[in-house]
């Protein structure tokens, strides 16, 4: 068998307002990460960040894409959507602030914890947003020793 580079990719399209499938990407990611010898807390952090990013696309965007690449020492995740962008980024980063629709809130989403949760669970977090869409770039490092 040919020699393969030691990284593993996951690519998923995420549809807007598809609350029912919400969590599919993070479930798939979790299944993958459990096959690696990673501390449980790291797995949890990766999955929480992934889940929140996935739900953001479902709740707020017109649809998007998540690509995840796992390396021996880190996880890189890009969540890209096609609009409408985040109006007030500073506010969006505050816990409890949400612009989720009535529909999303009725489903139990929109607690305003999405972006703060992602920031808290990743080692690198970047957000680019404009009317044409939002791109989140996230990294979780595996080697850094951390308790919580």
């Amino acid at each position: 068998m040919e020699r393969l580079a030691a990284s593993y990719r996951l690519d998923y399209d995420v549809r807007a307002r598809d609350y029912v499938s919400g969590g599919e990407v993070s479930s798939a990611l979790r299944a993958i990460l459990k096959q690696l010898s990673l501390p449980p807390d790291l797995v949890r952090r990766c999955c929480v960040a992934c889940y929140e990013a996935e739900m953001n696309i479902i709740i707020h965007s017109f649809g998007g894409h998540m690509s995840i690449e796992i390396f021996p020492d880190r996880l890189e995740m890009i969540a890209q959507d096609s609009g409408p962008g985040i109006e007030d980024l500073q506010k969006a980063m505050q816990e409890g602030y949400s612009t989720a629709s009535e529909e999303a809130r009725e489903m139990g989403f929109g607690a305003g914890m999405g972006l703060p949760n992602i920031k808290a669970n990743t080692d690198y977090f970047d957000i680019q947003t404009g009317k044409e869409g939002t791109t989140l770039t996230m990294k979780v490092l595996f080697l850094k020793k951390e308790g919580e």
Binding site: L4, A5, A6, S7, Y8, I32, Q35, L36, S37, L38, I70, F71, P72, D73, F142
Partner: peptide, 8 residues
Amino acid sequence: IGKALSMM
């Protein structure tokens, strides 16, 4: 982890 990734 590297070996596990290539196994995946």
